[in-house]
């Protein structure tokens, strides 16, 4: 029996009413029945300052969002390093700024990653494009076969 259960958060960002912008949420929808007790899911339209408090309660955090870049495999995973960014609105924070605030205010530094999934259509519409569905499928396969597998067998 494990002494300590790693707490992992999957934080899906987007809006299912804007076509492929719903990729982050669709990823969570697809994963929710496959996850073990270490994982929690949260859905967000956009990141705000209180999300710094949220991620401070986890060991590992994945920010999952649609991406405008067209990645070769349809998705891209990279570490999310703390960075203070500036934008006209603090209602919509960059994941790196959320990590930066978590570290600065709460003195916590979870392992953080960004999983970007390539989207191609972002107009007002419910439903993900065929291309984005394929990218989502690739991202799910990758996550299940590597990250999830690793976590379960750890």
């Amino acid at each position: 029996m494990k002494d300590y259960e790693t707490k992992i958060l999957l934080l899906g960002i987007g809006n299912s009413g804007r076509s492929d912008d719903g990729l982050g949420w669709a990823f969570l929808d697809a994963m929710q029945d496959k996850l073990t007790s270490e994982f929690d899911l949260e859905y967000r339209y956009q990141l705000q300052i209180e999300d710094a408090e949220l991620i401070s309660n986890y060991d590992v955090v994945y920010f999952i969002d649609a991406h405008l870049d067209q990645f070769a495999q349809g998705y891209h995973l990279e570490p999310c390093l703390p960075l203070r960014t500036e934008s006209f609105s603090t209602h919509q924070l960059d994941p790196r700024t959320v990590v930066y605030l978590c570290e600065s205010i709460y003195n916590k530094r979870p392992e953080t990653f960004t999983l970007g999934i390539s989207g191609v259509a972002f107009d007002l519409n419910i439903g993900i494009s065929a291309q984005a569905k394929s990218n989502l499928s690739n991202a799910l396969n990758f996550f299940e076969n590597s990250i999830l597998e690793l976590t379960i067998n750890k």
Binding site: E50, A52, E53, I105
Partner: peptide
């Protein structure tokens, strides 16, 4: 203006910011 926002408040007044965050969270 780079400082005059909630991120600036969080950096310079962390105790106040933490309370603000948790009060909003409570209502949510």
């Amino acid at each position: 203006p780079v400082k005059r926002n909630v991120v600036g408040v969080a950096m310079d007044y962390p105790a106040l910011a933490k309370k603000g965050i948790l009060m909003r969270k409570f209502g949510q």
